[in-house]
Design a protein around this nucleic acid. Structure first.
Length: 215
DNA sequence: TGCCAGGCCGGGT
DNA sequence: ACCCGGCATGGC
C-alpha cells in the first residue's frame, strides 16, 4: 500500500539522517523573508542576503516597508532575482501591515486555509512558499511539496508523473501524523537526500542512488 | 567551468 | 488548462 511506503520512507530517512533542524532563523518573520528569497535559489546565497538585512536592521515588517527599494535590492542581491524579489518583499510587508498590523501574533490567530488563501493572493507567493510559511513560521500541520519531493516520489512509484501539488500534499498529510514537527522534518529530509544523491533532473531516472525501495 | 539552486509570474497556445 | 521564457547570484 502506497501510504505504508511513504511512512517507511520517512522512517528510513529520519533514522539514517536524523533531525535536519529546519527552518534556520531567529524569528518567524525571518522565516518568511527566507522563504521568499530562497525561491529557486541556493540557501547559502540566502544566508548572505539575510545577514545583510540583519546588519542593516531590516528584519521587521516596518523597517522593510520604510526601506528604499534600491537599498533593499543591494542587500538581497546575493540571493539572485533581486529585482523581482525586492518587489515581492515589499508586496508582502505592505499586505501584512495593512491586514494584520505587521503583527505575527495576529497571524497566529488565523485559520490555516484562510491564511493560505491570503498568502497566495500576494504576488510572489506561490503554493510552496505559502506552505513553507504556514509550516515553518506559523507551526501549522502542512506538508510542503517541492521539486525534490516530486522526483523522489516518482522514482519510487508513489505518484504518477502528472500528479499535481495538491494530490502529493494530500497523500503525505493523510499518511503521516498531523504534526508540524514530523511534516517539517520529512520535507527537510527529502531536500537533504535530494541534494546529496539525486543530481539527475530526469524524474523518470531509475538509476539514481536515491531509489531506495525496490518496486 | 558550466550547471544549478529549498519557485513564481505572465503571456502565448 | 498546460507550457515556456524570464528572472540572476554565488558555489561546487
Amino acid at each position: 500500500m502506497r501510504s505504508n511506503r511513504i511512512f517507511n520512507l520517512y522512517r528510513i530517512l529520519i533514522s539514517s539522517l536524523g533531525s535536519q533542524h529546519w527552518w534556520p532563523a531567529d524569528s518567524p518573520f525571518e522565516v518568511i523573508i527566507g522563504a521568499i528569497l530562497t525561491q529557486n535559489t541556493n540557501w547559502k546565497n540566502v544566508e548572505i542576503s539575510i545577514n545583510n538585512l540583519k546588519k542593516a536592521n531590516l528584519l521587521s515588517p516596518n523597517s522593510i516597508f520604510n526601506c528604499s527599494i534600491n537599498d533593499l535590492k543591494s542587500y538581497i542581491k546575493p540571493s539572485g532575482f533581486y529585482r523581482v524579489k525586492s518587489d515581492y518583499l515589499k508586496y508582502f510587508v505592505k499586505e501584512f501591515i495593512e491586514h494584520y498590523d505587521g503583527d505575527m501574533s495576529r497571524l497566529m490567530e488565523i485559520e490555516s486555509s484562510k491564511l493560505r488563501n491570503w498568502l497566495l493572493s500576494i504576488k510572489g507567493i506561490g503554493e510552496e512558499t505559502a506552505d513553507s510559511i504556514l509550516l515553518y513560521a506559523l507551526d501549522r500541520s502542512i506538508f510542503v511539496v517541492d521539486a525534490y519531493t516530486k522526483r523522489i516520489f516518482l522514482r519510487h512509484n508513489l505518484i504518477n508523473k502528472d500528479a499535481d501539488y495538491k494530490e502529493i500534499q494530500s497523500l503525505v498529510e493523510e499518511t503521516l501524523p498531523n504534526d508540524p514537527k514530523i511534516l517539517g522534518e520529512f520535507h527537510a529530509l527529502l531536500v537533504k537526500v535530494g541534494k546529496n544523491f539525486c543530481k539527475k533532473k530526469n524524474p523518470l531516472c531509475r538509476e539514481c542512488p536515491i531509489f531506495i525501495f525496490p518496486t
